[in-house]
Every structure is written in structure tokens, then in C-alpha cells.
Design a protein around this nucleic acid. Structure first.
Lengths: 350, 350
DNA sequence: ACGTCACTGGAGAACGTTTGCCAACACTGT
DNA sequence: ACAGTGTTGGCAAACGTTCTCCAGTGACGT
């Protein structure tokens, strides 16, 4: 233990230049493939610089680059929780799309805490991202959304693109799916498959996605002449535990339904667990349906009904919006991606 | 098209200082809560600066800070795929632990591509992270590991801590679980529950984790006097699709087993899907077991047997290792976390 | 032989922040 | 009134990189 202390410094361009016996700018030019016309420098000189860089294990400081040209080669992605069912897929999609464009992704989580969300957006301003992709679920709480809008505006003011994933009333480019229509198709499909009495369990009423799905689902049922009493629409957290809780809240009435329609696959899983607690095994006697299409569920539960949301494709769409890769002059401010309705294993596009 | 170009600049400390009519260093001192003794500056002056900062929406440039003190307030986390079952949980754990320490996490993926992995580590050198947490599954390929070691060494040389999550032969601090022992306990538990004939499906043979689990499982069976012919141990990719493929490869022999023991929950899911394709519904006639404990599976599959790995706790342990929060002088280079064996819903600690 | 040209590579500045240093100032005690 | 003490806030430097200049070099045409 000679206490090296690892007081070692990173290798800088200065080190490379010194070893190659050239000036710092020259080294920079060589390593950047020649900023000027084509490749810069005498072959011999290029060789010296490249070899020095390799020998020292040099890698350019992204911080210095960021400070130089005012922005980092990064985009920020904000999700509520990273280990949500959907989030990981969305993140993967964004990362993939970003990588193709030579950008890195900084993932940040809000844990559905409005306060955290604002602090986060403040910090984000200091990180000089090229774009901010906000993939948290938006609410209908006007005041909260207004404050958020304020922060996003500041981000935009410093030159960052802001893109939303999911529905909201905020005035930014957004990638969405037609939750309402998809939910309606699911409802119709379930009725056509022979089901008649439904309980609906979903997330908080002030959450835009949750609201749209419930409304769409009820509309779909209405289309087939079926109405669901308010008491049979339960709102709980939009999560596995929320699904568990929602079924508990249905109490003894649970026996009376053909279907418990959860407005997310996570809630569906919680619902199934809760039913088992009461001694009811799905799908014997009662069926649970979901929304989102977590692939694993389809593998494990035969003939599970749900709606497939193209979570991975969100990333590509969001980045093309964010980086202003619009075709025409009028920038499209909203991309609606298609969903697929899966009823008992049969797929209906839409 | 007046070509506004959104040529707007980020707000800098200079802007704040100008508005508050103080010098830049003074503004810096005020906003940092006074680098000197305690709070710095006259109350009146502090007020001016803070108000100016708020009015302009100032947020300090992390890049400038990073360049100033040689390292960023970030740690890098490398995983193979972000939407793996386990990865998201590990990431969440690391993020949580990092947040408590005021650090941000940069997540990067290798997609199990050795070449990508090296490029990534090179870029990472330029990002000046405080620590690198490598959570990809390590192999027994000596040459590949040697090259990796080389790159990690360079990272260390510039002052970054390197920590591994999972087993490997590399000489770095690591957070692990006793895969071998846990697999053995699972095997014993399954035999004691009455099972007699086993097929084992696992990841590539050169993957350390996969190897350890298979060896442990076979040892556990041997302890109870059961041996598994080599033909009944199938290696395929360590994923859902790998599990599917593995069962396909078992062919008609599949009917002869009491249990198909998958060495990861993801493979178990694929195996279940594959069995259904053949008309075999789990757990009627055959049982599939897993490893990792994806919570959702337990909800959906009653009495699913698996091993719980404390994926979330990896983060905390990794960061305490990385940030050198060792107690004594002799830094612990390895933290082994406990697992729990879950056989048909019953839990056995270990 | 001299002016022109294309090109090479170095000097210096700039990006935004923090920090060491120092001059100016206010206050206290004698 | 004055020396001593402590505080305040500005100046300048530094971090690593890239870009704009500019002087120098050799080739070439006249």
C-alpha cells in the first residue's frame, strides 16, 4: 500500500501535442479529421499525432467540447420511473434513435413528484442538452401544468428542443397514440367476443392518459349498448399495486363481472394477483385485460387481451421531431403512432 | 420565415452578474452559498444576485464545472440492454444511490457487442466520470477480458473508480451474489418438492453467470443423487428468445421431464411460450422454474420457483464501493449480497 | 529572381466557471 | 487619531477544447 492515491490526471490534448511535438491546435485538427479542407497535416505529422493519442489513450473531453460550442451532444429523457413496464422500452427506443444520430441520452426520473420534476428541469438547463424529451404522464391539473410549461419555455429559450411523449394539453411537439380510439376498439372487441359485464380499473382521474383510455373504453362499450355504472370504474395508482388495490376496492361485487378491464398491463398484473388472493384464478370465471402490451404477459397468459402501444417507436419519432427533421416548412407538431388491439390473441390494427 | 433560428443563448453567470451589477466571481460566491467561511456577501448584495439569477432562470453549466475541477459529478453505468428484465431494476438502484450522493447517472448499453463495449469505454474516458459501474455479464473468453481490462485500467489511470456488478475474474471491486450456492439450493428445494427429472436451459457457456448457475444447479441435484445427462443441458442466448429456442432444441424429449429449469426468468418465459406452442400448458404436466425473480412473474404464475437476486441493492453496494466509502484501511474488494430461494411460493433465505 | 499562390502549423482568444490573491473598506480598542 | 483585525468584492488565472487569424514555407509561373 504505497498509497498511490491515484492522483493521476486525465490525458489531455496538451499531453498528446507535447508527445507528438506539435502545437495543441494542430493536434486537434489532425484528430478531428481536418477541420479545414480535407484531411489535415502531413502524413508524417498525422502519424505522429495519432500514435501519440493512441499511446496515451487520449479521448476528447466532452465537457470541453460542450463548453466550446454552447451545447452538449446529448439529449435528456425524462420518465417517471425507470423500472416501469413501459419506461424501459421507451428509453431503449430513444437511446437507439439517439445513437444513430451520434448523441448520448441522459435519463432522469421524476418518480411522479411534481416538485422533483421542476428541480430536475432546472438542473437540466445547466446541462445544455440539445433536446428534452418529456415522457412522464401529464395531468389535467392546470396549475401544475402551467408551472411545468414555464420551465419548458426556459429550456426552449436557451435553444433546446422540447418534445413530449404521450398526450397533454401543452403546446409542444408531441408523439402520441390514439388512446381513446384504441380503448374503444378494445371494448368493442371484448363485447364481440361475448363479454357483457365490465369493471374498469385505471389510474388517477387527473392523468390525461388514464382519462382518455377510460373514456374511450366506455364509449366503445356504449357503442354496443353496454353501460358501466360509475361505481364499477375504479381509480387507483397507475401501477401494479394500484391494480391490486382497485380489485380490493371492488369488494364482493367482483364475482359479478365477466371482465376486469385494467387500463394498463401493470394494473392488470396487480388485479390478477388480487383476484388470486380472493381465491379466483384467472381466466376461470373472470377475465382480466390490459393496455400497453408488455410482451412477457402475452407469453405467460394465454389469450390475454390488451392494446399494443409502439413504445420503442416513440423514440425514433420523438427524436425526429426534436431535431427538427421536418420535411416541409410547416413543422408537424404532432405525430400519432398506430396501435394494435389484441383480443384473446387475435390482432386488429388501428 | 423570419428565420428567428431560435439563436437564443443560454443564460450564463455573466448575465446574472451584469443584471445584479456585481462581478462574476462575486455572483459565483453568492450562489454557491459562500465558498469562504459561511454565507458570502452583504444581505443586500445576496438578494440582488439571487433575484437576478431567478429572474433570468439561471442554472450553472455542468460542463464548465466539470472542466474546472477535472471531473464531472456523474457516474457511468454500463449494461448490456436497458430493457432486459433485470437491467431496469439495477439501473433504478444505481440511480437512487447516486442521487443520494448528489451524482447523476449516465446509462450506456453495449448490446453484448464486445466491439461496442470497447468504443464505449473509450468515449467514457472523455466524459470524466467519477466512477464506472460495469454491469454487463462477463465472459470466460480470456482475450476479450484482457482487452477489456486494458480499457478499464486506462479509466482508472485518469482517476475514475471502476466497480463490477456480477461475477468475473477481473481484478476490480465487485458486487456479486453466490449464484452457485443459490442455484444449488434451488435444485435441492425442487427435488425435496418431489421432482425427479430435469432439463436445464441456460445462457452461453462462456458467460460467467450462466456457467456458475448451471454448475451450482447440477451440484445441488447431485447432492440428492440426481444426475442430468449433458444432452439435457441446453445453452442458448440468455434471453426470452433463448429460452424459446432452448425448448425447441429439446425436441420430443420435452415430454419426459418433470421440470425445465431455466437459469433466468427471461428464459423461463420463453420456455413457457415454447411449450405452449407444442400444446403443453404449464404447470400441467411440466413445470418451468426461473432465476432472478422478476416480481411480475410471481403475480402471474402461481407458485413459480425462482431465486431472488437483490438487483436494486446492487446499486447501493456498487456506489459505496466505487466512492471508496470503505471502513477500515483494507478496502473490501468484494461485496456478496444474499439471495432468497423461492420454491413454489415458499421462501428460503441464503 | 521575384511575386503569387496554396498550404501548413503556431499563437491567441474564446467558451463558463471557480479560486487565489489583493486592494479597499469598516470596525474595534487603545 | 491610529494601528490592527476582519470582511468584502474585484482582477486574473486556470481548466480543455476549437476556431480565427497570421506568419512561414515551398512550388510555380513570369
Amino acid at each position: 500500500m504505497v498509497a498511490d492515491d491515484s492522483g493521476s490526471k486525465p490525458v489531455t490534448l496538451t499531453d498528446v501535442a507535447r508527445l507528438a511535438r506539435v502545437s495543441v491546435p494542430t493536434a486537434s485538427r489532425v484528430l478531428n479529421g481536418g477541420v479545414r479542407g480535407k484531411a489535415s497535416g502531413t502524413p508524417e505529422l498525422r502519424r505522429r499525432v495519432e500514435e501519440a493519442a493512441r499511446a496515451l489513450g487520449y479521448s476528447v473531453s466532452t465537457a470541453a467540447q460542450a463548453i466550446k460550442d454552447g451545447r452538449a451532444r446529448t439529449i435528456a429523457l425524462i420518465v417517471s420511473d425507470i423500472d416501469d413496464f413501459g419506461s424501459a422500452t421507451v428509453i431503449a427506443g430513444v437511446m437507439h434513435a439517439a445513437e444513430e444520430r451520434g448523441l448520448s441520452v441522459a435519463v432522469r426520473t421524476t418518480r411522479d413528484d411534481a416538485r422533483r420534476e421542476l428541480d430536475l428541469l432546472t438542473k437540466l438547463r445547466g446541462e445544455r442538452h440539445r433536446a428534452i424529451v418529456l415522457a412522464t404522464s401529464r395531468t389535467t391539473d392546470a396549475e401544475r401544468e402551467a408551472v411545468l410549461d414555464e420551465h419548458l419555455r426556459l429550456l426552449q429559450a436557451q435553444g433546446a428542443s422540447v418534445v413530449l411523449i404521450g398526450d397533454s394539453d401543452l403546446p409542444y411537439p408531441a408523439v402520441t397514440v390514439d388512446n381513446r380510439g384504441a380503448a374503444a376498439r378494445l371494448a368493442v372487441g371484448l363485447v364481440d367476443a361475448g363479454h357483457r359485464s365490465f369493471a374498469v380499473i385505471s389510474g388517477p382521474t387527473d392523468q390525461v392518459t388514464s382519462r382518455d383510455r377510460v373514456e374511450g373504453f366506455l364509449e366503445g362499450l356504449a357503442e354496443r349498448g353496454i353501460t358501466v355504472p360509475d361505481d364499477d370504474v375504479i381509480h387507483a395508482p397507475f401501477s401494479r399495486d394500484g391494480g391490486f388495490e382497485a380489485v380490493q376496492r371492488l369488494g364482493d361485487r367482483v364475482g359479478g363481472f365477466d371482465v376486469i378491464a385494467a387500463m394498463s398491463d401493470a394494473m392488470a398484473v396487480g388485479a390478477i394477483a388480487s383476484l388470486r388472493d380472493r381465491g379466483i384464478e384467472v381466466p376461470n370465471g373472470i377475465e382480466v385485460t390490459g393496455f400497453d402490451h408488455v410482451p412477457m404477459l402475452g407469453d405467460v397468459l394465454p389469450r390475454f387481451s390488451t392494446v399494443e402501444i409502439p413504445l420503442e417507436a416513440f423514440g425514433e419519432a420523438a427524436l425526429s421531431l426534436a431535431l427538427d427533421e421536418a420535411e416541409g416548412d410547416e413543422r408537424p407538431t404532432r405525430i400519432a403512432l398506430p396501435t394494435e388491439t389484441i383480443v384473446k390473441g387475435s390482432v386488429y390494427a388501428g
